[in-house]
Design a protein around this nucleic acid. Sequence first.
RNA 1: GGAGGGGUGGCCGAGCGGUCAAUGGCAGCAGACUGUAAAUCUGCCGACUUCGCGUCUACGAAGGUUCGAAUCCUUCCCCCUCCA
Length: 374
Amino acid sequence: MSLSYERLGSDGAARRGRITTAHGTIETPAFMPVGTAGTVKAMLPQSVAETGAEIVLGNTFHLMLRPGAERVAALGGLHKFMNWPGPILTDSGGFQVMSLKELRKLDPDGVTFRSPIDGSQHRLTPESSIGIQRLLDADITMSFDECTSWPVEEPEAAFSMRLSMKWAERGRRAFVERPGYGLFGIVQGSTFPELRAESAKALIDIGFDGYAVGGLAVGEGQALMFGTLDYTVPMLPADRPRYLMGVGRPGDIVGAVKRGIDMFDCVMPTRSGRTAQAFTRRGELNMRNARHRDDPRPIDEHCACPACRHHSRAYLHHLIRADEILGVMLLTWHNLHYYQDIMRGLRGAIEGKTLDSWIASFESDQALGDIPPL
RNA sequence: GGAGGGGUGGCCGAGCGGUCAAUGGCAGCAGACUGUAAAUCUGCCGACUUCGCGUCUACGAAGGUUCGAAUCCUUCCCCCUCCA
């Protein structure tokens, strides 16, 4: 395998590990901020790194449309282009097969999209997706799949999963092995145990550098998601990293780590940073709400991010209300920092084999709710 | 002094005889957001309310016409533009 994964410890099903890529190492469990268009929105790359993030995402589909994969390659690859020297994982465009379902036509060979930017037609196949990710210079390439939506009937989920498995095999053949670069397969099958098993087996037979669980956090709810992980994760090879795609809220991540997931990505901390929601140890806050108007306290007095070290809730509330760019920047920064605090906490707890008590404390803090204003 | 235009819910601004408690936008009050078509989207936003297209008070003021007026008429008050 061209991407190394070391097991550094475990606590129950939870694992503490390290992935080594061409552009550096990733301590796992890891949260990967989403940088769809070659930027983690509202953040300087250096600031993203300061939160503790070691790897970010890019997106095949969006970067293919703009600025174009060839252009990124000519300019030295995505790391250089966006000035993120660390590892990058690129999604294959599979999520857009679902999220842009009104703009695409799927056939057995691939997907034809209409560009949401200008309406022009673009084609993505398992091979072209892998090729684009190579041009982008992604350390971790994702198989081109169909992210199955939810709810879905079993026959449709089976059809979709089997198509994704064929595409996974084609992608594997198209992927060019290089030291420090890896290709991940994506388990589909919605919330059907037999389909997940069939999918996992198919991928393991093909052989990947890592295994992702896809098609979750698409509306099924946390209980069903955890239930699906309970039977799906044990089917994945123990010596390879496991990635739960698109997840999630803090509680989702904690529960998934407990079930043996190593990697996460989610737009939640960044998007919510732009829609006024702050994630905190004691739950979620809407910084737009009038109750913060006169509050001199930081979002969280225990948080070391710039928003919490230097600014009051009242100020952040004002910035958000006034539609000031800094408000979005500070809230995004806080959220990413908090997410990385969670990951640091989880890694430490697994190392110390105190995960259960760490989780109990995490959950009781979340349940407390925000400290009321004085 | 003369000619013309206008005063609508916190603000801006549609409406110009009924289907108007009154389009929109902003502000305000909440909610949503999970491999980013998102600094986006949704709901509420006169009062009361058993939350129901139920009652009441409302479109500068007062009066009038009409079955019915924010919409037509009269008088008054105020604002704007132009001419003296």
